[in-house]
């Protein structure tokens, strides 16, 4: 069995600060990390490897520096990494991104399960996972909080999906795609041996030509959506903060909230 994990490198948002003068994000010196939800995707793949002896792959579409994200995944225990890096990919929306990822998955071939994170902490769309599934004509289970079982012989997987007001149990036939939430596991730290291995391991780099894609099918020209403007939201107005006797503070607060609640 083959499991492929899709990961995205994102800025470490803890350090995203707004410059009060220019009202823009200060991103200098902001470290890049693996998208938090994708850590759970990596961990789940490694657990499947330990449980069922599957072969694990990690792929990312991103600029040259995204290689470090792939190495981190390798150091945790993923077997192989592939980097989809090409200037032509810049500006891809979720339609084009999921197309590129789908083509890469097809090229790896013979896969049984694709694992994505629930959503990326920068783009925030949660659209790439289902997008890949659709390009590959695969069934999907989004927001998975648990893989109950995998029946390798009949190729059926049973999962639990986290919904707004409870959870759903679903059976999907493999090959399939899932997106995962935090509840599914707790990601491990890389071992020293893993780190050493990851440092040395060769990583294939694929461009659009390797995927049989035309330049106009990817990047900006392959993207139906266009970002026309980016701005920072107006800062929240300064609040009224009450200090002192609890009873008085509570009275003041209730007075303020009353009209909104009644």
């Amino acid at each position: 069995m083959k499991v492929i994990v899709c990961i995205k490198q994102v800025p470490e948002t803890t350090e995203v600060k707004i410059n009060p003068e220019t009202n823009t994000l200060i991103r200098e010196g902001v470290a890049s990390i693996i998208n938090p939800f994708d850590m759970y995707a990596i961990e789940e793949a490694i657990r499947l490897k330990e449980r069922y002896g599957v072969q694990t792959f990690v792929i990312t579409m991103g600029p040259p520096q995204a290689e470090s994200a792939l190495r981190e995944a390798l150091s945790m225990g993923i077997d192989e990494a592939i980097h989809l890096s090409d200037k032509a990919f810049a500006g891809s929306d979720t339609w084009a991104t999921s197309l590129v990822l789908a083509k890469a998955i097809e090229k790896i071939g013979n896969y049984d399960l694709i694992i994505c994170g629930k959503q990326a902490s920068d783009g925030d769309t949660a659209q790439v996972g289902p997008g890949i599934a659709t390009h590959l004509n695969l069934p999907q289970a989004t927001y998975v909080r648990k893989i109950d079982s995998i029946d390798g012989k009949n190729k059926i997987m049973r999962v639990e999906r986290l919904l707004e007001d409870g959870y759903e149990i679903l059976e999907v036939f493999l090959p399939a795609l899932i997106t995962v939430v935090k509840e599914i596991n707790e990601p491990r730290l890389p071992s020293l041996r893993g780190k050493l291995r990851a440092k040395k391991q060769a990583i294939s780099v694929w461009a659009h030509t390797d995927l049989g894609l035309k330049e106009e099918e990817v990047g900006l020209s392959g993207s139906p959506t266009q970002v026309v403007k980016i701005f920072t939201p107006p800062p929240r107005p300064k609040g009224a903060i009450f200090e002192g006797e609890p009873e008085e503070c509570v009275d003041k607060l209730v007075e303020k909230l009353k009209t909104h609640i009644l």
Partner: peptide
């Protein structure tokens, strides 16, 4: 932009080749 909405519409958008803006 619910769990159902996001999972559903992402599939539709790819199939009909439309742009989809999230949330």
């Amino acid at each position: 932009a619910t769990t159902a909405g996001r999972s559903l519409v992402s599939r539709i958008a790819v199939k009909v080749h439309a742009g989809l803006t999230a949330d």
